[in-house]
């Protein structure tokens, strides 16, 4: 039963595995065009929906894979590293991140991809992330109360709403397919942007 580290593979390999998986992740992101800020923000202006297509396909593929592996007893999905859902800080943080996305044109993963192919705006964006982390950390004593508020624990959506995880994932996949179709129609109507 997974995860393979530390049971079957020695934890010393952890960082090697990290680099190898990182290379694969970076290769795919760059090949999908995620090193281009102008392609990424297309999803917010209707001229390129690559982010939506790649992101949802990836999330659903991984979810389906994990559900199968859980069913066969290869992993315990509930034991995998999820994050505690601290509802209010996540919503506020997410909206701030969304603002950063439309101003800066990257998110942290895509900015690192852009660094890999020499985009100077990617380097600067990463410097910005470090600045933001620094400011947050220094302000932490003030933010600590809010940071820990609204915690409902490390729950999954099906657990929280008491629904069947298989049906939930099927509905998410259906919503994604509808979104793929609708955005295709939107893109036909929106003025093309050259980049």
């Amino acid at each position: 039963m997974g995860p393979l580290i530390p049971e079957y593979i020695s934890p010393e390999w952890n960082n090697v595995v990290a680099i190898v998986l990182g290379i694969a992740f970076g290769y795919v992101m760059e090949s999908a065009g995620f090193s281009s800020s102008r392609k990424l923000v297309g999803v917010f202006y209707g001229y390129d929906f690559a982010v939506l297509r790649v992101f949802f396909t990836a999330a659903i593929t991984a979810s389906l894979g994990l559900l199968f592996m859980d069913y066969f007893g290869w992993v315990d999905m509930a034991a995998l590293d999820g994050l505690p859902a601290r509802v209010y800080p996540i919503i506020v943080g997410g909206i701030i991140m969304g603002l950063g996305f439309v101003i800066g044109g990257f998110c942290p993963g895509t900015c690192v991809t852009a660094i890999g192919i020499g985009k100077l705006d990617g380097y600067v964006f990463f410097g910005g992330i470090m600045l933001g982390v620094f400011v947050f950390s220094e302000m932490f004593p003030l933010l600590e109360g809010f940071y820990n508020s609204g915690n409902v624990g490390d729950v999954s959506v099906p657990e929280y709403f008491n629904i069947n995880p298989y049906w939930f994932t099927a509905v998410v996949a259906l919503v994604a397919v509808i979104a793929f179709y609708v955005t295709l129609q939107i893109r036909k109507k929106v003025k093309k942007v050259q980049y």
Binding site: G93, G104, F125, L143
Partner: peptide, 14 residues
């Protein structure tokens, strides 16, 4: 890019 990155880094901590 610097401003966007700073906002993203700040928000991601929450």
């Amino acid at each position: 890019a610097l401003l966007g990155g700073a906002l993203f880094g700040f928000g991601a901590q929450f």
